[in-house]
């Protein structure tokens, strides 16, 4: 985080905010993509998040907490995106498409065996979690951040991070047990 840019953006400096966007957009998009699972939704949520941040900057009291503040906005943007798309009927993957997804996943993975087994099942289970749980798992595992940093980003204590991670993993495991269809 660049504190000077945050301060300037907070004062309404649009150029500073755009510079801030360029610095943060990769992380925000990546988080949104992991939470939402598709690029179009992630792009929409990323745009909404930054627009929300711009509009809401006056409410940021402590610039030091910009990361956590932006993280909450991203989660809310993802939540809104999910809400908007909730009525879109999902079409079950047929066997060919499922195979293609698994193949694509396998190619992209550093650990093909881990993914190929459960790519579709994992996604279904993951998408049954709350947006907060998805964010937590994404920060801790996809981004591989230390628990202390996750706690700072979410504005919670490390102990709370651990307990929430444990609950989120348990929920994910329960999701894997649910019948598909």
């Amino acid at each position: 985080m660049n504190r000077e840019l945050v301060e300037a953006a907070r004062r309404g400096d649009r150029d500073a905010f755009e510079a801030l966007v360029r610095g943060e957009v990769a992380g925000v998009y990546r988080t949104a993509l992991a939470i939402l699972g598709n690029a179009a939704d992630a792009e929409e949520a990323t745009q909404d998040a930054f627009l929300g941040a711009w509009r809401g900057f006056p409410s940021l009291r402590d610039p030091e907490r910009f990361d956590a503040w932006l993280g909450r906005i991203v989660v809310n943007a993802c939540r809104m995106t999910l809400r908007r798309r909730r009525g879109v009927r999902e079409i079950a993957l047929d066997a060919d498409v499922a195979a293609a997804v698994v193949e694509r996943a396998t190619e992209a993975s550093a650990d093909p065996a881990a993914i190929a087994i459960d790519a579709l099942t994992f996604d279904r289970a993951f998408e049954s979690l709350s947006v907060d749980e998805r964010q937590l798992l994404t920060l801790a595992y996809a981004d591989d951040r230390p628990l202390e940093e996750v706690g700072r980003l979410l504005d919670i204590a490390v102990g709370t991070v651990k307990s929430r991670l444990s609950r989120a993993r348990a929920a994910l495991a329960r999701g894997l047990e649910r019948p598909t269809g």
């Binding site: 881990a114 993914i115 459960d118 994404t138 996809a142």
Partner: peptide, 18 residues
């Protein structure tokens, strides 16, 4: 309950994150 190790979670989330 299915076994769910950190490596599986990590690999799948990275796949989702593109």
């Amino acid at each position: 309950m299915k076994e769910l190790d950190e490596a599986t979670i990590r690999a799948n989330l990275r796949r989702r994150a593109g």
